[in-house]
């Protein structure tokens, strides 16, 4: 599917990633799943930002999803979660643009202490909605040309981003940001059973 689900801006502090703003589009998930999906996308975004070096880009595949991450040299980071069919080049160009826009509107001295409620930046939902159609990116052509795709680090699973000794299952269990409900979803989703039958 050509679809974007989540767009977040973080400040990557020395000990943890600080969420400054987030927007979600989860209409395509079933009603009772949306809460858990949102928590997981937030969790995955934070986890990956914290494990991405400053001045680098990563695209991490997890099942049918793709998390695109860009952490700038000044530690401002953006995460875009979309379906794996969404073009990577457009995703990263959009991240560049969003972070530029954020920098222009939110002074850097607010980044290390800001919270979702204190930061005045309301553009994320509009970006998320507009770029559902990657053709919109035509307007970003120059930025796209500047992007060096060969420098994007590709990872096949979130596990591949984790540091030695870290286990995703343990992190999910320990996480305080995930509700019991979300943990239940995680556990069920892991049991993949085939659904195809001849009948």
């Amino acid at each position: 599917m050509v679809k974007l689900y989540a767009l977040c801006v973080f400040f990557k502090g020395p000990s943890e990633g600080r969420l400054l703003k987030a927007a979600y589009d989860l209409q395509s998930f079933s009603f009772f799943q949306r809460g858990a999906v949102q928590e997981f996308m937030g969790f995955a975004s934070k986890t990956i930002v914290e494990r991405t070096q400053a001045a680098s880009r990563q695209s991490v595949k997890q099942d049918a999803y793709m998390c695109h991450v860009y952490v700038r040299a000044d530690n401002l980071g953006g995460v875009l979660i979309g379906d794996h069919e969404y073009p990577q080049r457009v995703a990263h160009t959009l991240l560049t643009k969003v972070l530029d826009d954020f920098t222009a509107k939110v002074p850097a001295d607010q980044w290390s202490t800001g919270t979702e409620s204190s930061i005045a930046f309301t553009q994320l939902p509009a970006y998320l909605s507009k770029y559902q159609d990657p053709r919109e990116a035509d307007a970003l052509t120059k930025m796209q040309n500047d992007l060096d795709e060969t420098k994007i680090i590709l990872k096949n699973t979130i596990e591949a981003v984790l540091e030695r000794g870290e286990k995703l299952d343990d992190m999910v269990i320990k996480s305080e940001n995930l509700s019991i409900q979300s943990k239940a979803f995680y556990k069920t989703a892991k049991k993949t059973n085939s659904c195809c039958s001849f009948s």
Binding site: S30, F32, A184, K187
Partner: peptide, 9 residues
């Protein structure tokens, strides 16, 4: 408008 089974432990 929709029915689903909600995973609960």
């Amino acid at each position: 408008t929709s029915f689903e089974i909600i995973p609960t432990l």
